[in-house]
Design a protein around this nucleic acid. Structure first.
Lengths: 237, 237
DNA sequence: CGCCCACAAAACATCGATAATTTTGCTTAT
DNA sequence: ATAAGCAAAATTATCGATGTTTTGTGGGCG
């Protein structure tokens, strides 16, 4: 009764194996903040929460530890990687390094397809950013698509992979700051600057704009984060 | 991947957990070339070879797949990451990016301890490189220690971590080219240039020298690698 | 003669249970 | 009362066994 299987549906990535599902779920929960920094990840607990066996869970946790989302403490289990002022600065710094390099490459070697995809992504993002009543969920996704589109022309799989991981690690910090969103900031203008420079094939200008953009993002986040650090309401669960 | 900030020590005498041992053994065997590119990693086989249960092995393989040493193919098990001309170029490029950034930082903020360790590492490396009858094992280790010492002053844990992984991925390519060692090359001179610039606190010059050094290493390896690619003797096992 | 389907064998992924280790809580002596 | 030492409890790491998917092979049909 096992047919060769339904044709692949690209849009909804239903993970084929349980390890993959566990990986994606845990990753998403760490990034979204549902799993708080420093939380101990007891396998029994996770087993109940996700309805996945211990083995695939441990495998997923192993992968995540290599990615830097959780830490594997000797024989004392796993816990969510803590967040810190210094860590955010470190991630930001490396992200700038990786992203500007990839962007430069992308701009210099991107073809027509790259351009048109970039235009589309920017158009969509602009529309969402212009909304008076923002849907953060969609906006976040559009933001991610836009940044990916910028780099898509880059010829280095490694750079893209690193960027993906760093982007999500950074996102974790950004997510906690969204809650307390604060400082006035014209994000759209920053995006526009990058976009214009990219289309004009001015790599240096685009990289500068990207640097500014990422730095500003970090600064806003740092602000919120420092406050949150003073009164730690983290669940030690 | 879990490693302390400590400089590379070849062998962790007794990894605390079996997963760790499996991880280190597999990693070493992939890097050394004992496990050939593309080889299918059958769990039963590994189980027999390393005398470690299936669970820790799978966890180790998961970590390695996140590190980029093996690939996890859907429901079709694991295999050693293939090697290719393009991959080497990609790794080299990113390694240069990461290593020069870390080096610049290190030079600008390294203290006395950093300096003295660097002197020691260079001294040892020089001695080994001057030997008429080279011990590649030791030389390789000294090389690693030297490069680590150069970067040790860098304030970014992330950069160091990335460097460590990239260095080892690069090493894998270098190892296969050692067998067919060929092109005349004054490695010591390249090291000296980096060393002198670093001690003189000339970051730009040191980065340039590093770039040259890494590029030369890649070129030598590419040479050998291209030949090997023509007559593929790889085990499809 | 070749292609396709069905079946069998192998390998992978997963589960439940066991062994080993760490943490916790309690007792006792200073 | 406090700190050290021991014992129980919780939790992790690991193993052996079981279900599923994939792969290889042979026979039937066009």
């Amino acid at each position: 009764m096992n047919f060769p299987g339904a044709p692949a549906m690209g849009s909804s990535p239903q993970p084929k194996t349980r390890t993959d599902r566990a990986y994606l779920l845990l990753r998403a929960d760490v990034i979204s903040g549902r799993l708080k920094p420093g939380t101990k990840l007891r396998v029994e607990q996770l087993r109940a929460d996700y309805d996945i066996g211990a083995t695939p869970l441990r495998e997923a946790l192993s992968r995540l530890s290599a990615d830097g989302f959780v830490i594997s403490e000797g024989q004392r289990g796993f816990r969510v990687v803590p967040m810190s002022y210094n860590d955010l600065q470190d991630i930001t710094r490396v992200r700038i390094l990786i992203e500007t390099e990839a962007l430069r490459d992308s701009i210099e070697s991107g073809d027509d397809v790259w351009e048109s995809r970039l235009v589309a992504a920017y158009y969509r993002l602009s529309k969402l950013e212009a909304q008076a009543e923002p849907d953060y969920e969609q906006r976040e996704r559009a933001n991610e698509v836009f940044h990916s589109a910028l780099l898509a022309g880059c010829g280095s799989p490694l750079l893209l992979r690193l960027h993906h991981t760093l982007y999500d690690q950074h996102k974790r910090y950004r997510n906690i700051s969204l809650l307390t969103a604060t400082v006035p900031r014209d994000v759209h203008e920053e995006h526009r600057a990058i976009y214009d420079a990219a289309l004009a094939r001015d790599a240096t200008k685009a990289c500068d704009a990207t640097r500014v953009h990422i730095m500003r993002t970090m600064e806003v986040t740092l602000e919120v984060f420092r406050k949150a650090e003073e009164k730690p309401a983290s669940a030690t669960n």
